[in-house]
């Protein structure tokens, strides 16, 4: 098969970018989308043109590295899959396909189709963990956790950190990503002692990194390769309010204590 590609090319973070057209002929419909790009890149290199930079690693939908916006949709036409799980048979012979990087202010473009998603790591560093030292853990079975709760926490934990939710959101909000982590840990008894502190600092960090507000449009969940549910956003909003209350009460108690 043959397709026409419109690809975003940008030399570096500070260079202007533009769409370039490439004809990709002699493709096999069983190629993955990224294999198609490999073939295009090989042909570009053979005629002395620098290959298109794109991010990828596992190529099986679990590492969260691949991040292409295909025909205006993060991760392309399929439902509940990542870019690397998209196959050429999802397109028609002769189609024109537009390929862009994930677009969002907190994800600056580094080169061509590669963006910088380190803001996600910084949010995690601000509180996305349970503070337990290596070696200090009690026996794994000493805290029974109901299957329902464990399964629910697992639903949230599936997030692969790809950033499609941010790229799909008109406000570039990171609420789906942050709420998945916050919910996973606040659902589980191990994460409860720190739940107030965690949600407050992760949300503060998210705002500081320049992610926008959530208006619950749902475009994030619609493109999520792991189908992380919008319910977690509702849950996190509750956790957040509870944490604010807790903090306010704590402050008041602290003041009283000081006066006494």
């Amino acid at each position: 098969m043959k397709v026409n590609l419109r690809v975003w090319r940008q030399r570096g973070p500070d260079s202007p970018g533009e769409f370039k057209n490439y004809e990709a002929a002699d493709l096999n419909p069983n190629m993955s989308f990224l294999e198609m790009l490999d073939v295009v890149n090989d042909r570009l290199a053979s005629r002395g043109e620098e290959p298109i930079a794109f991010a990828h690693d596992c190529r099986e939908g679990i590492c969260g590295t691949c991040c292409l916006n295909i025909n205006g949709k993060p991760h392309g036409p399929g439902r509940a899959i990542a870019t690397c799980q998209t196959y050429m048979r999802s397109f028609r012979d002769g189609d024109t396909i537009t390929i862009e990087p994930f677009r969002a202010k907190p994800f600056p473009i580094l080169k061509d189709l590669v963006v910088d998603r380190s803001a996600f790591d910084r949010i995690m560093q601000s509180g996305g963990y349970v503070s337990v030292r290596t070696g200090a853990a009690p026996d794994g079975n000493s805290i029974p956790i109901s299957k329902e709760i464990a399964d629910r926490a697992m639903d949230a934990a599936q997030c692969i950190g790809c950033g499609a939710c941010v790229a799909a959101c008109k406000n570039a909000s990171a609420m789906l990503f942050v709420s998945a982590k916050v919910s996973q840990l606040s659902l589980l008894p191990q994460g409860r002692p720190e739940r107030h502190r965690r949600v407050l600092s992760m949300v503060a960090k998210m705002d500081e990194e320049g992610f926008g507000n959530c208006t619950v449009t749902g475009s994030c969940a619609a493109v999520c390769p792991k189908e992380v549910s919008l319910d977690f956003i509702t849950r996190m909003n509750r956790d957040y309010l509870a944490a604010l209350m807790h903090e306010a009460v704590g402050r008041a108690a602290g003041k009283e204590g000081g006066a006494g």
Partner: peptide
């Protein structure tokens, strides 16, 4: 045996039985 304990404490959502055990 200690690896499992450590991971559970970190919040790794291992599969559980209905009784709540691993």
């Amino acid at each position: 045996v200690r690896i499992i304990d450590q991971c559970v404490a970190q919040g790794v959502p291992f599969a559980r039985e209905y009784g709540g055990l691993l």
